Simulated assay, not measured.
Amino acid sequence: MTDQTDLADRIAWGRARAATVMAVVFVAAQAASFPDSVSLNRPQTIHLAAWIVWAAALLFFLAFAGGLFRGARMRALLNDETTLDHRKRAMALGFWGAIGTAALVYAISFYEPISAREGARLIITFAIALALLRFGTLERRALKDG
């Protein structure tokens, strides 16, 4: 193997591991911060802004973790057909996870009041986490087999 191929392999393994770890940490952090029944104040505004930035960063990672800031050859090595398929399948699972979570939030809202803000956070959190977990799992499986 060449140096670039070895580097691409290390980056791909790191990306697969990072996707899984980030999903777990994201969900755990959100679970600890969900009871937000008070109106928006300065600390909650900062917390909400941090959550938005974190969610956007995770989506950016999922969409562009294929060497966006590397050369064209490295991007080609990192974004082979398998990885593009894994990314597509992960995004699809994230979409269906969002739909399922939205349906669940809707059903729960008949028994427990859920604010629009809490519902949106639940939907977005689970959609991103499912997509990241799926991507990490598919990538690790492919890297281990290949």
Rank of each mutant, 00 (worst) to 15 (best):
T101I: 06
S39W: 05
A57H: 01
H86P: 02
K88W: 01
L68D: 03
G100Y: 13
G100Q: 04
K88R: 08
A50N: 11
A56W: 05
A102G: 04
I99P: 02
I99S: 08
D80T: 03
K88L: 08
S109A: 14
D80P: 03
P43Y: 05
A102V: 03
A76S: 07
S37E: 07
L68K: 02
I46S: 07
T83D: 07
Q44H: 08
S39L: 09
L59E: 10
A57L: 12
A92C: 05
T83R: 10
A56I: 05
W51R: 09
G71K: 04
G94T: 14
T82D: 08
L104W: 06
F60Y: 15
E81S: 06
G94F: 10
H47Q: 15
N41Q: 12
A49M: 11
D36V: 15
L40K: 09
M74L: 14
G66E: 09
M91A: 14
L48Q: 06
A57N: 02
V38C: 00
A65T: 00
G66R: 07
P35G: 06
R75V: 04
A72W: 00
R89C: 03
L58Y: 02
F64M: 11
A50R: 11
F110T: 02
L40G: 02
A65L: 00
K88M: 13
A98I: 11
V105C: 12
L58N: 04
A92K: 10
A56L: 13
S39H: 05
I46L: 10
V38E: 06
D36T: 04
D85M: 07
P43A: 13
I108V: 14
D85H: 09
L62N: 01
P43W: 12
A50K: 07
F61C: 02
P43V: 06
G97Q: 07
A103H: 01
S109F: 06
G100F: 08
E81Y: 00
L68G: 02
L78H: 04
P35N: 06
L93K: 05
L93V: 10
G97W: 12
G94H: 04
R70E: 05
A55K: 03
A72M: 03
I99C: 15
W96E: 10
A65Q: 08
Y106I: 10
V53Q: 08
